[in-house]
């Protein structure tokens, strides 16, 4: 068994189609969770909006959570 792992399951507020806002909320949630692994709900970046625009990995909106994970040493699954 590997070393103990601190995990968190988050259910943050989301705004429909508001990827940038949601990504920022994700970043804050990652910081607040203080966990090595932070798991987010289904389609948490866009909201469960099936007609949302697909997100590209290099979307600048995703910078806050990427940065948050880099700083906190966390891994986010969202």
């Amino acid at each position: 068994m590997p070393a103990p792992l601190t995990v968190a399951a988050a259910q943050p507020a989301t705004v429909a189609h508001g990827v940038a806002i949601n990504a920022a909320v994700h970043a804050d949630t990652v910081r607040a969770a203080e966990a090595r692994l932070v798991v987010f709900p289904e389609l948490s970046l866009t909201g469960y909006e099936l007609d949302a625009e697909p997100i590209a990995l290099n979307d600048k909106s995703l910078t806050p959570p990427v940065e948050a994970c880099r700083v906190t040493g966390s891994m986010a699954l969202c």
Binding site: A8, T14, A16, F40, E49
Partner: peptide
């Protein structure tokens, strides 16, 4: 171990309310 992150509050796709209650 299981980590379930579950949507809370309203969102699209008919979810005027959702279950939340994320759990480990």
């Amino acid at each position: 171990w299981v980590v379930f992150a579950s949507f809370a509050g309203p969102t699209g796709g008919g979810f005027t309310e959702s279950a939340g209650s994320s759990s480990i």
